[in-house]
């Protein structure tokens, strides 16, 4: 190796050491700061996955907007779905500060190269699913997201503060739907229980593979992209959700679930990770439907985007001429 090359490698190492030290001191990294290529790439991956999840996450709920059982429910669901669009936009913007364009991000989603939360590949078959999603899926999302408000990358942390502030109504409106159903007719109660039965396990999977299987955890912890491991987050979710289910008379669909006095936590049954990986790899019940809906919306909106741009340019030219 030439002397020059060795000097370059050493300079790189010292830059990286300074960078890691900044993060250790809880300093934030901003868009124009020097960062290791791996930091940039990991953040693009995570933030874009997060943005895609918000955008695809609108689809299962959008399914019920026109059929919400009352005006109160309809305005709440509309507002929630609109928030998700907003959250997607905050996150795409944060991601773009890392030097990737919005078009590239969309392209990755549409081509199936980028992932999004696997839970949105499950169908929403009854109104109770709107309750279960708000209560469980948003509940799990909040547990995942709150620690990200203090992550090391400034634009991501700021977007997450805004997301978390808005998310708590999402969970409450979902739980309210469940409360109402469990206080209703026998049929409504069964509908609520059925939704819990179908959404419980996918919600647990949503917090990610077990620590033993999670490939990115160690690096992510160092960069404060993660503050707690997947298994810790999952346990926290279970411990806080089980009493909520008991409160409204619903039964968690896990025969192995029981309170462990010694641990001060619930023990729970085996998660079907084969199902999780199948859905992640594109073979869930609605993967194709979700991506097709996104691609169609993007394609069908093309003439609108082009017309708006043409109009803006024409107007600019007229203003110049005057």
């Amino acid at each position: 190796m030439s002397k020059e090359k060795i000097i370059n490698i050493e300079a790189q190492r010292s830059l990286e050491a300074q960078f890691e030290a900044r993060i250790l001191r809880d300093e934030k990294i901003e868009a124009k700061d020097w960062m290791p290529e791996k930091y940039r790439k990991t953040h693009i991956r995570q933030i874009s996955q997060h943005a895609h999840s918000e955008i695809v996450g609108m689809l299962p709920e959008g399914n019920w907007i026109t059929r919400a059982p009352s005006l109160r429910r309809k305005v709440a669901l509309l507002a929630k779905v609109q928030d998700e669009a907003g959250h997607g936009l905050y996150l795409y913007s944060a991601c773009e500060t890392l030097g990737i364009s919005r078009e590239e991000l969309y392209e990755q989603l549409h081509a199936g190269k980028a992932k999004y939360s696997s839970i949105f590949n499950y169908p929403t078959v009854t109104w109770a699913d709107m309750g279960a999603i708000g209560w469980l899926v948003d509940g799990a999302a909040i547990i995942n997201q709150v620690p990200l408000c203090s992550t090391s990358y400034g634009p991501y942390a700021r977007a997450m503060v805004r997301v978390c502030k808005e998310e708590s109504f999402h969970q409450r409106q979902g739980f309210e739907i469940m409360v109402k159903l469990t206080n209703g007719s026998l049929e409504q109660k069964e509908m609520a229980q059925d939704a819990l039965n179908r959404w419980w396990w996918p919600s647990l999977m949503m917090l990610g593979p077990t620590d033993a299987e999670s490939v990115h955890t160690e690096q992510s912890m160092k960069w404060k992209l993660k503050r707690k491991s997947n298994d810790e987050l999952r346990q926290q979710f279970i411990d806080q959700t089980v009493p909520q289910a008991e409160l409204i008379g619903l039964k968690i669909p896990d025969k192995d679930l029981r309170w462990n006095e010694a641990r001060g936590s619930y023990d729970f049954g085996e998660i079907n990770w084969d199902e999780f990986w199948q859905v992640v790899k594109g073979h869930g019940p609605c993967n194709k439907e979700r991506i097709n809906a996104r691609v169609d919306a993007w394609k069908e909106g093309e003439w609108v985007r082009d017309a708006a741009m043409a109009y803006a340019e024409k107007k600019k030219n007229i203003d110049k001429a005057v």
């Binding site: 507002a79 609109q82 928030d83 907003g86 936009l89 905050y90 913007s93 944060a94 773009e96 919005r102 700021r158 977007a159 805004r162 808005e166 985007r305 708006a308 741009m309 109009y311 803006a312 107007k315 600019k316």
Partner: peptide, 23 residues
Amino acid sequence: SGSLHAADAEMALENARDVYTRR
């Protein structure tokens, strides 16, 4: 507050209202 994409300034204002001032 953040950023967004829009064809022109007027649309940027309208979108900013929906994206950044919903509450």
